[in-house]
Design a protein around this nucleic acid. Structure first.
Length: 213
DNA sequence: ATCGCCGTTGGACAGGATAG
DNA sequence: CTATCCTGTCCAACGGCGAT
């Protein structure tokens, strides 16, 4: 199989400006010119399982498990925020919870004091104290923690499987996009041909009119 | 005490979508 | 076409915490 992208240097989404430089913390997928930089569905699912198995915020263990090669803790934390539907993750630190359950609940919260950023609820007002965070962790543990026999039995894909799954997903997306592109190009060609035909007929009539005049 | 690493979080900045 | 708002991504400062 030929590689999809032979050389990748620039992000598609930010072709100009000061962001158009490679930085150490940039997601690799931001630079591989995929249409949707960031996380694939498979990677999201792996991260979700890893968080349930190792606990929210235990990035060192998740990185050590090598289930998401190439992802930094900063990237995983940002993805966790999206899954939770809130920016602050401290109140779930160390808990074995399903982030999508929290996210589902947060997506329904409305109100004048609820401020959102990218659909994530963000903190307003002052930072919560350490005691307050501890209280919230305890409360969330009672509400959302999954049983140990469940999270300890979660099996994460091996690194080689992750690579193959991700690559196959990208090939699949490439094929879909190629089909879509071909379809659009065919439509453009059809429109152009029709336009040419109309212009030709119009010219013909003008010629006949002028000639007879 | 202090040093360095790690995680958290508010904000900056890019492109995209949409209304007028 | 332009202004404005929205979305996505990451920076950088800060605080916590363990090691020395």
């Amino acid at each position: 199989m030929t590689p999809i992208i032979e050389e990748t240097k620039k992000p598609q989404s930010m072709p100009t400006g000061p962001r158009n430089v490679l930085r150490s913390n940039d997601s690799a997928s931001l630079w591989n010119c995929t249409l949707s930089p960031g996380w694939s569905r498979e990677e999201c699912d792996i991260l979700r399982k890893a968080l349930m198995k190792y606990g929210i915020g235990n990035w060192a263990q998740i990185i050590a498990s090598n289930c998401l090669p190439g992802k930094t803790n900063a990237q995983m934390n940002l993805q966790l925020q999206r899954m939770l539907g809130q920016q602050s993750t401290a109140e779930f630190a160390g808990l074995h919870v399903d982030p999508l359950v929290i996210g589902e609940k947060n997506s329904k919260i409305q109100g004048p004091n609820i401020k959102r950023k990218n659909n994530c609820i963000v903190n307003t007002g002052s930072r919560p104290s350490r005691e307050e965070i501890k209280r919230r962790i305890q409360k969330n543990k009672e509400l959302y923690e999954i049983p140990e026999e469940e999270w300890s039995n979660i099996v994460l894909p091996k690194p080689e499987d992750v690579g193959i799954t991700t690559l196959n997903a990208k090939y699949e997306e490439l094929r879909r996009l190629q089909d879509e592109l071909a379809n659009v190009q065919a439509q453009i060609t059809e429109i152009r041909n029709k336009k040419r035909e109309k212009v030709f007929v119009l010219k013909k009539y003008i010629y006949i009119y002028v000639y007879n005049f």
